[in-house]
């Protein structure tokens, strides 16, 4: 047995069978003898010798139960990004299916920009039936009917709409899954 073997044996939790070789090596190698000594001390502590049991603070159970009673289990929590909160925000956002869908939509629209015009015309036709004349005038006075502004609104609205629908879809799905189980 050499120094590296001995260190590996210590790291692996000192499996049975090599004790004699270890003892022989440690007798002629002060560095390994110190490592062995340190490991034995650490292991004694890890095994909990002389260590008391950790107790939760007083009234911990009561406080938990107060929260439990206040928590309505039937109502699902709306979490926009429910998983992996330990990751940075951009990684979470990138992993969110809604974001992915929104990105695909934006890419698609950027690729076929003429579709935006068609969509705007369609929205305009639908809108003109319901939007009153004064509102249209205000819109125009404020300069919000300029093509560039409209395009900007659309660019913001489309991914937001896609993301919102998917969140809504996932929420409904969760409620349905819960109600079918119950």
């Amino acid at each position: 047995m050499n120094c590296a073997d001995l260190k590996r044996w210590l790291n692996e939790g000192m499996p049975r069978g090599s004790e004699r070789d270890v003892g022989e090596h440690a007798e002629r190698c002060p560095g390994c003898a110190a490592s062995l000594h340190a490991q034995l001390e650490i292991d004694a502590l890890l095994r909990g010798e002389g260590r008391g049991r950790v107790e939760a603070p007083p009234r911990f159970v009561d406080r938990v139960m107060a929260e439990v009673l206040a928590a309505d289990r039937s109502a699902p929590r709306i979490e926009l990004w429910p998983a992996l909160p330990a990751l940075p925000w951009w990684a979470q956002a990138a992993a969110d299916p809604a974001t992915v869908l929104a990105c695909v939509l934006v890419a698609l629209l950027a690729w076929r920009i003429d579709w935006l015009g068609d969509l705007a015309r369609l929205a305009g036709n639908l809108g003109s039936r319901y939007v009153t004349q004064p509102l249209g005038q205000t819109w125009s006075t404020m300069g919000l009917d300029r093509p560039a502004v409209t395009l900007g609104f659309e660019l913001i609205a489309i991914p937001a709409l896609a993301w919102g629908s998917l969140v809504l879809y996932r929420w409904t799905e969760r409620i349905l899954r819960r109600s079918t189980r119950a």
Partner: peptide, 27 residues
């Protein structure tokens, strides 16, 4: 409860943080 708190305490080091984490986990 004690074990959940103890686990959180050994991982976080702070009793206040451990209590919050354990409580949150149990809820």
């Amino acid at each position: 409860g004690d074990r959940a708190y103890g686990l959180a305490l050994r991982m976080l080091g702070s009793p206040e943080e451990a209590e919050e984490a354990a409580q949150d986990a149990l809820v």
